[in-house]
């Protein structure tokens, strides 16, 4: 009976304060959507890191005639130097995973292949040099390789692709943090809106709550309908937000981006499923806490 009565009270309250409930739904939805986008951005960065850090290489460029690198002194790398460098790299295992040799011609061909539709393809062969391409077991160990190879005779330069990628990742990270920061502002707005809504409903129902108090209804009976109204509307908002996020990832990322840009990894809907429970539980906790605290202040028992 009491359960039914409480359900009825919740229904009545939602019906009578529909516009307030709708505003709570919308604000929660937008804030949680933004938060979700931010979290997805973070996961995208993580996914790309995982993908790329397995593939990034350290390039040990060797000397060619007339290169500007001071270490070369204008001389091309000799075969003896080559062997020494190769041996040194092999000695660095297991930090070094694999070592490939790429000759100047191969490098030039590969470049022309990659950029065949670009004006860069007209660059001459002289821009290229022989090199060792080194895969690392741990992409973070570049410095170990660099320090032992860099000064060796015949080595023009040691380059880390990771450095280039990192700039890109930092950019993506910043964007996703900005989304999270924005969403936290929205969450603040949602919290204040919930608090205002509760004050409003508590005021409009002060007659009923007054009588409940008089006849000795427990605090739980008096407050539960208010709390449930806000929790229900904010959870609805969060569920809608997660739906929107799912659609964004499903049709925007999986359906479009990953079809278009095939040579990198993207997040999938699984990432939405992973994030959604945390977001929804978070919203439940946040809205019930907010409403409980507000009720303590505005609904004296």
């Amino acid at each position: 009976m009491r359960f039914q009565f409480l359900l009825g009270e919740i229904g009545n309250g939602l019906r009578r304060n529909l516009s307030m409930a709708v505003s709570v739904v919308i604000v929660t939805m937008i804030s949680m959507y933004l938060l979700g986008l931010g979290l997805m951005g973070q996961r995208q960065v993580d996914t790309m890191k995982d993908y790329w850090y397995d593939r990034v290489q350290v390039t040990v460029m060797l000397c060619a005639e007339k290169t500007r690198f001071t270490n070369c002194a204008g001389e091309a790398t000799t075969d003896a130097q080559r062997t020494a460098i190769k041996a040194e790299l092999e000695a660095l295992k297991p930090t070094v995973k694999e070592v490939y040799y790429e000759s100047r011609d191969e490098a030039y061909d590969r470049f022309k292949q990659t950029y065949k539709n670009s004006p860069l393809a007209r660059a001459g062969e002289s821009y290229f040099a022989d090199s060792y391409r080194v895969n690392l077991n741990d992409a973070g160990k570049f410095d170990v390789v660099a320090s032992s190879i860099k000064g060796m005779p015949g080595v023009a330069d040691v380059q880390d692709q990771k450095k280039l990628l990192e700039k890109f990742f930092t950019f993506m990270n910043t964007v996703s943090w900005a989304a999270i920061a924005l969403s936290s502002l929205m969450v603040l707005a949602a919290v204040m809106l919930i608090s205002t809504t509760i004050r409003q409903t508590a005021f409009s129902r002060r007659r009923e709550t007054g009588i409940m108090r008089l006849v000795g209804a427990s605090n739980f009976t008096i407050r539960f309908p208010f709390v449930m109204e806000t929790v229900l509307s904010s959870v609805l908002g969060a569920v809608l937000a997660m739906g929107m996020l799912w659609a964004t990832v499903r049709y925007g990322v999986v359906g479009f981006l990953s079809q278009t840009l095939t040579d990198t990894a993207f997040i999938g809907v699984a990432d939405v499923y992973y994030v959604a429970p945390f977001v929804i539980v978070g919203v439940i906790v946040l809205s019930s806490l907010t409403s409980w605290v507000t009720l303590r202040r505005y609904l004296r028992v």
Partner: peptide, 11 residues
């Protein structure tokens, strides 16, 4: 009836 309802009386 409201007084009884809020105290959880049976129908």
């Amino acid at each position: 009836a409201y007084a009884l309802q809020v105290l959880g009386s049976s129908r």
